[in-house]
Computed example of a mutant assay.
Amino acid sequence: MTADSQVAAGQVIRSRSKSRRGKPPLWTLLDRAIVKRLFDIVFSFSVLILFSPVYLLLALLVALSSDGPVFYIQERVGKQGRHFGCIKFRTMVNHADRLLVEMLASSPHLQQEFEDNFKLKHDPRITWIGHFLRITSLDEFPQFWNVLMGDMSVVGPRPLVPEELHRYGDAIEQVLSIRPGITGLWQVSGRNDIPYPQRVRMDAYYVNHRRFWLDLWLIVKTVRVVLFPKNNGAY
């Protein structure tokens, strides 16, 4: 082998080595996906069983708070762009969507706030139990059913509404490559108080750096946010 051939062979070997280091093998990604899915199923089923009395109590309080269904199902965009019905405890009065249209039409200030965050910080449509559910994030308790059905994961990027997709720009394909999560970096880091571009970066970061230990850390942080909900950006 000539000196030039040896140099060329060395370059190929180094290039392949860097490629292997930069991108995990397909089997590794599949193993992670299988482990994550098994964890999601076991964890969600356990939570629904162990906390079923809390679940039933919250459902009863929602039913007593105002007329309307116990659950609110909103269209969200999941893995690979598939739309699904995201389940939450209802936190607003009945026909809240119709009232929102009327409120935004009569108030440019509210319309701008809603366009910025897809939420209103002081929303008059929220019921008395709805305030508690949102501050503690317990309104998302029923989403464990979404996890069991395969629409969501326990930990992942935010489940997006269709109107948000364009705001993710080039990152949207990456973010939609995995299931959205009940909790995640955004949910434990200030939620609605976080500027929108930072939300996008957080979701993209999680997709690129997701590991089992990171999921466990985020779950622990989520428990802390639920138990001590002061100034967590939820409303």
Results as ranks from 00 to 15, higher is better:
S52R: 04
F51V: 07
W27E: 12
M202W: 00
F114I: 14
G85R: 07
W217F: 11
H122D: 14
S15Y: 10
W217Y: 12
L216P: 02
K79D: 13
Y168V: 01
S19M: 14
T136M: 06
Y168T: 01
C86D: 03
E115M: 15
M103N: 07
K36Y: 08
Y72V: 10
R14G: 11
D215H: 01
S177N: 03
D151F: 05
T136F: 03
L58C: 09
I194A: 10
N232V: 15
G68A: 05
I73M: 06
V42I: 15
D203Q: 00
K221V: 00
V200G: 00
F71G: 00
T2Q: 14
R21H: 09
K88V: 07
V47W: 06
L99T: 12
R167W: 10
E163Y: 12
F228V: 13
F141N: 00
K79W: 09
W213Y: 11
L110R: 09
R224D: 10
I34L: 13
P124T: 10
I172E: 08
A8H: 13
E173R: 11
D215P: 03
K18C: 12
R21S: 12
N231S: 13
V101G: 08
L48G: 07
V47T: 07
S137P: 03
C86H: 03
W186Y: 06
L185N: 02
R14V: 09
I34E: 04
L60V: 15
V47S: 03
E75Q: 10
S52A: 06
Y55F: 15
M1S: 14
V77W: 02
V70G: 02
R158F: 02
R16F: 03
L29N: 15
H83Y: 13
F228R: 12
K23T: 15
S189N: 06
F114E: 07
N208W: 09
A9E: 13
L61I: 10
M202L: 08
E115H: 14
I219L: 04
I41G: 13
F43C: 09
C86M: 11
W213C: 15
S15L: 10
G85L: 03
V226M: 09
P25E: 08
F43L: 09
I178H: 06
I172D: 07
R16I: 06
G181K: 03
G169A: 02
L99V: 12
V223C: 05
D193Y: 05
T91E: 04
P108F: 10
G181V: 00
I194T: 08
A9T: 13
I219S: 02
V147S: 06
N208K: 12
P195G: 07
A171Y: 02
I41Y: 11
K18S: 14
F89H: 02
D203S: 00
S153G: 04
L185A: 03
L185V: 08
N117T: 12
W186L: 02
R201D: 13
V70M: 06
V225I: 07
S65V: 05
V175L: 01
W27I: 14
W186Q: 02
Y196T: 08
V101L: 10
F118E: 08
S15C: 11
D97N: 09
F118I: 11
V54M: 11
P157N: 02
D40S: 08
R20K: 13
Y72K: 09
S52H: 08
K88D: 05
P25S: 09
R210C: 12
P197K: 07
W213K: 14
S5R: 15
F141Y: 01
P157I: 01
V220W: 02
A96H: 06
C86G: 04
W128A: 15
L56C: 11
